[in-house]
Design a protein around this nucleic acid. Structure first.
Lengths: 251, 251
DNA sequence: CGCCTGATTGACGCGGTTCAACCTCAGTGG
DNA sequence: CCACTGAGGTTGAACCGCGTCAATCAGGCG
C-alpha cells in the first residue's frame, strides 16, 4: 500500500505532522496542543494481509485509525454465512468509543498499519477535546449514510446490478485517483477475491463469477487475467447498476 | 399512538419536563438550563399517516426528534423498487446536522409528532452545548451499528429469519419502553403495513404475509387482528433470527 | 350497499444457491 | 525438470426460496 509511511513507522519517525492522513482522520480538527496529547497516547501496529485485527465479542482495548491498507468489517451468522458491512480505507476509524466489546470482525484485507489509542484514555480525551468529538460525529454520520446506500444494494438489487454497482464504484474511484472524469477505457485491478466480493455483495462466489463473465460476454467490460478489469462502456455499466440517474452512489 | 401526549401538544402544554421521551432523546444529557434553550427553539408538528415529511433532495430546514409514532427512511431505484433504510421510533433523531439537502425520503408510517428545531440554530447549539454533541454521537454510533446489523439481515438472512428479526426487535423495544426485560408474553402493535415491512426487510408483501402466518402456525407468535402481536416464546423467536447467540442484536 | 385499502392464499416460474467436477496457476519439493 | 499440492476461479446441473401474477377475503367508510 503506502510503503513510504510503513517504512517511516518502522524507522520510528512517527510524528503527526508527517502523517499522510491526519487531515482526514478523527484528529483532523485538532490543534497542535491537542495533537500533542494524541501523539503521547498513540502507537503504530502493522498487520499482515489476511490477519484478524479483532474478533466480534473481543474486549475492545484499543480504538484506531487506518493509516495505510484496507481492512474489512464483517459479521457472521451462526451457520457461517458472512456479510461484509464495511470497508475501512486509510483515515477511517476502527472501534467504537463507549463500547466494551467489539461488535464486528475486523480483518486486514491487505497489509494494514493502524494508529492505535487505548480506548479508555481516548474516551477521556473525547470528553475533554470538543474538536475530537465533532470530527468523530461527522465521520459517524458519513459512514451511516454510506451504510444506508449499501442497504439498497443488498435489499433490492439483482446479482447483475450488484456486480455492475461494485465495478462502477471501483472504476469511479480509480478515475478520481487519476484525476479524470470516469470514461470508457478506465481500467483497474480487482484487489478482492471472488469470495470477498460475494461477502460484500450478499451473493455466492459462483454467482459473482458467472455475472462478471456475463458482463464480459455482453461487451460491458474486458478482463485481462482474472483480476484486471477494463470498462469498455462506462455509460452502459452505469445503466446496468439500476440506480436512479440522479441521486448517485456514495462512495 | 400516544394519544395523551398528542393531546398535550394540541392543548399547548409542551414542557420538556413532561416529555415522554426526553430521557432517551438527543436532549437526554441536557441540564435544565440547556433544556430551556432547546425549549425556546422547538416547535411540535403532527403528520398524518402516509404523509411525506421530506423527499430526498429537499432542502433540510429542520432537524427533529420523533415524539410519538413511527416514521420511515427510504430510497428507491429507477424502476420503483423501494428499500427502507431506517425505522424511526419515538426518541429517534431525524435529519443530519451539517448537510444542506436530505439524502433519503422520510415518511410518516403512522401519525407522527415531531419535536422540530430549525437546522441552523440547532447546529449552533450543537457546537456550544457539549452534552448535546455527546448524546448525538452516541446515537449516531448506535444507528451505525444498527445499520450494519441490518446489512447482515438484508444480505444473508432468509425470509423467515428476516421476519423473526424484525419482530424480536420490536418486542425488545416495547419491553424497554415498559422498563422490563424481554420475556414471553410481551405484546405490541405492529404499526406497519405488510408492504412497509416488506420494504424494510427487502421482501415482497406476499412473502411477509406468508412468513408471519407461518410463525403464527408454528406457535412462535400469536396474532390478534392483523396488527397486534404477542410473543408466545421469546427464546424461540430469537433462535429463529439466525443470529449468533453472542454478539447479539443492536436495538 | 358498493368501494377501497390492506391482507391472505394459491399456482407458477425464475434467479440464485447448492453441490460437484474441473481448470489454471503459482509454489514447493523430490 | 516434473510431479504434487492447494488456492482461486469457472462451469454445469438440479433444486428451491421467493417473486410474480391473480383471485379472494376482511374490515372501514361514505
Amino acid at each position: 500500500m503506502n510503503g513510504n509511511f510503513a517504512r517511516l513507522v518502522e524507522s520510528g519517525i512517527t510524528d503527526c505532522g508527517s502523517c499522510p492522513i491526519q487531515r482526514r482522520a478523527v484528529c483532523a480538527y485538532c490543534q497542535s496542543a491537542e495533537l500533542l496529547l494524541l501523539e503521547q497516547m498513540k502507537s503504530y501496529k502493522t498487520y499482515r494481509a489476511g490477519e484478524v485485527i479483532t474478533w466480534a465479542g473481543d474486549d475492545q482495548l484499543y480504538v484506531a485509525t487506518v493509516v495505510t491498507g484496507v481492512a474489512s468489517l464483517s459479521q457472521t451468522l451462526e451457520d457461517g454465512r458472512r456479510q461484509m458491512v464495511g470497508l475501512l480505507l486509510p483515515s477511517d476509524f476502527v472501534g467504537r468509543p463507549g463500547r466494551e466489546t467489539a461488535l464486528f470482525d475486523v480483518e486486514a484485507a491487505t497489509e494494514v498499519v493502524l494508529c492505535r489509542f487505548e480506548r479508555k484514555p481516548f474516551e477521556k480525551l473525547l470528553a475533554e477535546v470538543p474538536r475530537l468529538g465533532e470530527r468523530m460525529l461527522e465521520m459517524a454520520l458519513d459512514e451511516l449514510d454510506a451504510a444506508r446506500e449499501w442497504m439498497l444494494l443488498l435489499g433490492r438489487k439483482t446479482a447483475r446490478e450488484k456486480i455492475a454497482s461494485l465495478l462502477s464504484i471501483l472504476a469511479s474511484r480509480e478515475s478520481i485517483l487519476l484525476e479524470q472524469a470516469p470514461s470508457d477505457g478506465v481500467s483497474f485491478d480487482l484487489r478482492l477475491t471472488r469470495e470477498a466480493m460475494a461477502d460484500y455483495l450478499g451473493l455466492t462466489l459462483e454467482t459473482v463469477s458467472r455475472q462478471i463473465n456475463a458482463l464480459k460476454r455482453d461487451g460491458v467490460i474486458e478482463l485481462t487475467g482474472k483480476r484486471h478489469v477494463k470498462v469498455a462502456d462506462f455509460a452502459r455499466l452505469l445503466s446496468e447498476t439500476g440506480d436512479d440517474s440522479d441521486g448517485g452512489m456514495v462512495i
